[in-house]
Design a protein around this nucleic acid. Structure first.
Lengths: 237, 237
DNA sequence: TCCGTTCGGCGTATGACGTAAACAGTTTGC
DNA sequence: GCAAACTGTTTACGTCATACGCCGAACGGA
């Protein structure tokens, strides 16, 4: 009835076999992950190559393969090591707790934009990933929601935070001036077929850049409003 | 005051310069995009290489560069060509319209899972991408929401549909049996530190696989509930 | 009609990438 | 001390995106 645990995931859980024979190891998965993260933070996920990470550590490329099965594995390690920043104590009120959770998450994504580009391979299975999940599940525990409903809430919040961050970061990433996109659309779009979009652009509400944080909080409040409806219906009915 | 339009985006808007001298072109961006999509649908986005796309079209690798500036550009074309499936007529009621929009979007993502993996480079700027936006904006037009609020709603729905699809598809992708993940967690997670998560797993609500479509609709309804609150507050107050 | 310009498709070449395999040096257990 | 086990390195291979130069096709002007 044993579960087959992928090797690197085991390592991240501290399941390191004690050293026996041979030379001492000069690295460990965490240091490798930190080096990769340093590169990704500076030059983007695309700049993370085995060679570059090895160089950052002053070691040959192939040395990494003693600690990590391959590049996919390296991504797993990066996600784990880079997923800090979760606060210790959350509010007891479920709504406040969820707000805090989302803000922490958002801060993480803005600090490490590459997280959004890592091709995710399955549900969370490493300690810090689970820390995030634990905090969220715990925060919802006194909400009165059923278990599937709580999972649904998690999905929604997770998706919202990621979506918001992805949009804001991609704008920066595309190197567009704030009014670059509206100008482009006005130039290209057939005014009849895209009447509604153009009408929105004409209001000028796009050019004046609202505070992204404010936008984020507004949307979050709306989502939590919806969830609160559900919570209340579960409490009453 | 001219706007600099990226070459391939111009092509997609039909801004093809009329043929002049030289041999007739044997391809066009749309056929290239279709070939790439055929490959991505079958073997994933990772299998889309210039060589492979060219082979699919019975042409040499370098021929593609006459139509597409590079691989990033190819992705833009793929997104554009693959973004069909939007219905013609939407309900006039904003909520029903948004439901239809989300369902169409979800269907698209399940038909072409690679869409979620394409590194997106900026806001939508091609015809079909804008069709989606037009439909959504139009659907919200009689909601009474302000323009920024409508954009917020769009972001939320977009994020939710993508997040839901990403989760469901990544589970399939990781090749996990339905109970694979819970088993793994139970094996690895410290029962004290991850008490809440483990409590959720114990309910067994995870192993029995709910209909994903039903889950999707449930979550969507909750989000729309939240938006409806906002709509009503704008109508009354 | 003919020629020069222009352009489409192809072949080759380059440098980066991920990683398999063989190797050499070091530590440990017997 | 010797062999096993384990370390990091070197070399090598196949694949990738793509820069460059060539050839021949098609058209415009003469």
């Amino acid at each position: 009835m044993d579960v087959e645990v992928p090797r690197t995931i085991g390592l991240l859980w501290g399941r390191d076999e004690p050293g026996r024979r041979g030379p001492k190891r000069s690295l460990d998965v965490v240091r490798i992950g930190e080096a990769a993260i340093r590169i990704a933070d500076k030059d983007g996920l695309g700049a993370v190559s085995m060679k570059r990470v090895a160089a950052e550590l002053g070691v040959s490329t192939m040395a990494l393969y003693r600690y990590v099965e391959g590049k996919d594995d390296l991504f797993v390690v990066m996600l784990e090591v880079g997923s800090g920043g979760l606060r210790e104590k959350f509010s007891t009120d479920w709504r406040a707790a969820m707000e805090e959770w989302c803000r922490d998450y958002r801060a993480l994504l803005f600090a490490h934009p590459w997280v959004l580009q890592v091709p995710l391979a399955g549900p969370p299975a490493t300690p810090r990933q689970l820390d995030w999940m634990e905090a969220a599940v715990l925060g919802l525990e006194d909400s009165g929601l059923t278990v599937p409903e709580r999972m649904q809430v998690l999905l929604q919040l997770n998706a919202y935070v990621r979506g918001d961050a992805a949009l804001n970061l991609s704008l920066v990433d595309a190197g567009m001036s704030p009014d670059g996109w509206p100008r482009l659309i006005r130039e290209l779009a057939d005014p009849e077929r895209y009447a509604a979009v153009l009408r929105v652009l004409e209001t000028g509400e796009f050019d004046k850049e609202d505070d992204p944080m404010e936008q984020f909080e507004f949307g979050l409040a709306r989502i939590l409003d919806g969830i609160e409806l559900l919570v209340e219906s579960r409490r009453k009915g």
